[in-house]
Design a binder for these strands. Structure first.
Lengths: 192, 192
DNA sequence: CGCGCGATTGAGTAATTTCAAATCTAGTGG
DNA sequence: CCACTAGATTTGAAATTACTCAATCGCGCG
């Protein structure tokens, strides 16, 4: 369907959404469409007020270093959230870019509105807190993997962990997520 | 002082602690002392029910890989929290070890008791949620740094970010946190 | 003094990157 | 249907970075 209903379905998985909460969320959540290549957040922009929930498509967040190389921080597909969470949560300028790698339909929410939801409906704060805890685990695992695994093993882990990404992300997106060059990834793939 | 009062001072920084909350916390929080080398959590143990708040001393969490090499995931000093947050939040067996690298005084809290505090005093859940968001930013920054910086730059970033760690952690602890060998760190240090 | 642990240094080796060229692929127009 | 093109991927060879293994150094402590 790719509409607001999908978002409420997602929410229903973790909490029960009252009619009042539903009304408030409907009024603050905006559905947006983007095309492959569109930039939702740009490194250096003054502040990061938005976070996005993916209804359809694929996005990624990435940083461009001083040598103009891109490094993928996160991918997002259906039912994932994405933003520059460094800028978003530390209330600073954008440290990351967010762009579409496939045409997308997303729900755009801003921090202040979400805060309002938390205040009026505390169960949403609990839901968010549990999400954060799960994400926290994922980030810790990524760090642990990066510390102890070889490039090849990180790749093998990636494709078992996120099997859907191989077909939608390009070679160099995945390489830059794994912290290697696209040439190295190509060589790893060729003798697996 | 290194007693419970320090913990309440820490909490007072982010919220106002009612007398009732204070009573509940006093009843569930246990002060524990550990010596350098003591293991608080051991990789593989059945579950991770505890998290620790540091009153004094230095601890670290780390993983031992299949070649018996240690990789430091996190350090903790006064006013930091530490545990195996992978096991703790995903309710699984311990993926990490936690040990003392200096004699420690910590407050031990368990998940179920903390949940009770959240339920009875929702402002603690908000406090925790904000902490998680800050930690989330730190982990994202660590990943970004790992992706885009050289070993030398990661080291330079580490000593500006955590200047107190250089004197309390050993060479190979820091090296294993940065994802390099102790020999490489030694060489980096010698021509800085 | 001598032991033990941690840090440093050196030399050879392995893994990965860099730069450049070649190949593949999907889409476009003749 | 085929040729062409632009973008993406692969391959090769040299250079770089970091690692391994081994030996040595330095220091605190019994």
């Amino acid at each position: 369907m790719n509409n607001m209903e999908d978002f409420f379905n997602y929410l229903s998985n973790g909490l029960s959404v009252s009619d009042e909460a539903r009304d408030l969320i409907s009024s603050i959540a905006k559905i947006k469409r983007f095309q492959k290549g569109d930039l939702l957040i740009e490194q250096g922009q003054e502040n990061v007020l938005q976070t996005y929930f993916v209804l359809n498509g694929v996005l990624r967040s990435f940083v461009i270093d001083k040598n103009d190389k891109e490094h993928t921080v996160q991918f997002a597909i259906k039912n994932w959230w994405i933003s520059d969470y460094i800028g978003y949560y530390s209330n600073s300028e954008a440290m990351l870019n967010v762009d579409c790698i496939k045409d997308c339909i997303v729900i755009k929410l801003n921090r202040a509105s979400i805060q309002e939801v938390f205040t009026r409906f505390p169960e949403f704060e609990t839901f968010h807190r549990k999400n954060l805890e799960r994400t926290f685990v994922r980030l810790n695992k990524r760090i642990v993997n990066h510390l102890q695994l070889s490039a090849r093993d990180r790749y093998l882990n990636f494709i078992t962990e996120y099997p859907e990404m191989e077909s939608v992300a390009m070679n160099y997106h995945i390489a830059s997520y794994l912290g290697i060059t696209q040439q190295s990834l190509s060589r790893i793939r060729s003798n697996t």
